[in-house]
Each structure stands twice: as structure tokens, then as C-alpha cells.
């Protein structure tokens, strides 16, 4: 597939290439698709992109993606306001929401501490979380940062900062993915899942 390097179609393909996971071939395929699509479909896509940029922002309380000052979760009166689940990025929040396994509020750190790269607490939204806890009403903070060096460092730091305020701080469990054969699990996951066993 070849596309002339100049012109409107090439410009569109170059814009698609900037998206994550999109290479040259896919970009050209998408550009051709847009060209062949009905006008109203293509313009709807353009409008959706414009609306996202114009109206989507971050929740002032939890830093989730929001269309108003507060996100839908923070506005929802049915949510358990005594529990806050801490994640690194909004994408993790949406994965947990998809699971429907948590009914409390969230706090997005927008990053994680990194001893390897020297990322300190002032570069993530840890202070804002401490402020939320200080304001009262929260009894448990569940740290759901990734099980990486960065995520672990963040979890330890948050534990040290939040526990003096009298809240219960817990960490999500490590373990064997559902449906997986235990014999294929790696040593670290196995060790952690045995350490984190629960009584039946």
C-alpha cells in the first residue's frame, strides 16, 4: 500500500501514526477507511475527539477522568465513602470498575514513586490523598499500585504516611490468576500467594 507523502490523506495518516500501538501500515489503513466511510460517520468521529478535548478533564477530588468538577464515581451517593482504593493511573481505575468488585471511592496518584529514577512523593498525588484522609470519613485505604518495584515503594510510603492518621491501610492480594495452572506460575507469584493465603 502506498500513499503519496503530501496531501490530506497523508496528513491524516501521519496523525494516526502518533497514536499508541499504531504503525505506518495501520495508519494508512485507517486513513483509507476514513476516506471511504460515510461523511456523517467520519464527522461523528471528529466531533467525538473534539468533545473529549473540550469537555473531559480530571476530577478535583480523585483525579479520575471527569466531565464535570467531580467524576461520576465521586458524585454517586450509593458509593461507600469510607473506603478509598488508590491506583497509579485512571486506566487501572477503569479496569477495576469493569470488574464490579469494588464499591468505594478512588484516588489516582498519577504516577508512582521510583527509587530507580528518583521520583519522589512530591511528583505524585500522595499529599492530596493524605489531605483526604485528614478531612475524615475514610476508614480504609486499599493500595492497588502495580506489583512492581515502583508500586511496592509507593505502597510502603503510603502506609507510613497514612497509618498515623488512624486509617486501616491494606494492599491488594498477589496471587495466581483465575483459570491458570499453578505449576506454570513463577516463583515470586507463588511465594506471594502462599504468604497471602486466607483461612477457609
Amino acid at each position: 500500500m502506498s500513499v503519496q507523502q503530501q496531501g490530506l490523506l497523508a496528513t491524516l495518516a501521519r496523525e494516526f501514526v502518533k497514536l499508541p500501538g499504531i504503525g505506518q501500515k495501520t495508519a494508512h489503513r485507517l486513513a483509507f477507511h476514513i476516506m471511504k466511510a460515510r461523511s456523517e460517520d467520519a464527522l461523528r468521529l471528529a466531533d467525538a475527539i473534539r468533545d473529549v478535548k473540550a469537555h473531559v478533564t480530571f476530577c478535583v477530588q480523585c483525579r479520575n477522568i471527569a466531565e464535570h468538577e467531580l467524576c461520576e464515581i465521586c458524585q454517586d451517593p450509593k458509593r461507600d465513602r469510607t473506603k478509598v482504593l488508590v491506583v497509579e493511573e485512571p486506566s487501572t481505575l477503569h479496569a477495576i470498575e469493569r470488574s464490579r468488585g469494588f464499591h468505594g471511592l478512588y484516588h489516582v496518584l498519577s504516577g508512582a514513586l521510583s527509587p530507580l529514577d528518583g521520583v519522589g512523593p512530591t511528583e505524585i498525588r500522595a499529599h492530596e490523598l493524605e489531605q483526604r484522609v485528614k478531612e475524615g470519613g475514610i476508614t480504609e485505604v486499599i493500595v492497588a499500585t502495580n506489583p512492581t518495584i515502583e508500586g511496592e515503594a509507593t505502597a510502603i510510603y503510603l502506609t507510613n504516611v497514612l497509618k498515623p492518621h488512624g486509617v486501616h491501610v491494606s494492599r491488594i492480594a498477589y496471587g495466581i490468576p483465575v483459570g491458570m495452572d499453578i505449576e506454570y506460575a513463577d516463583d515470586i507469584t507463588l511465594t506471594k500467594s502462599i504468604e497471602g493465603r486466607r483461612e477457609l
Binding site: L113, S114, P115, L116, D117, G118, P121, T122, Y157
Partner: peptide, 9 residues
């Protein structure tokens, strides 16, 4: 990166 990265700033 500083070893005391928590207080780096």
C-alpha cells in the same frame, strides 16, 4: 537518583 529519594527535593 539520590538514595534518599523520598527527600530528594
Amino acid at each position: 537518583p539520590a538514595m534518599d529519594f523520598l527527600a530528594a527535593e
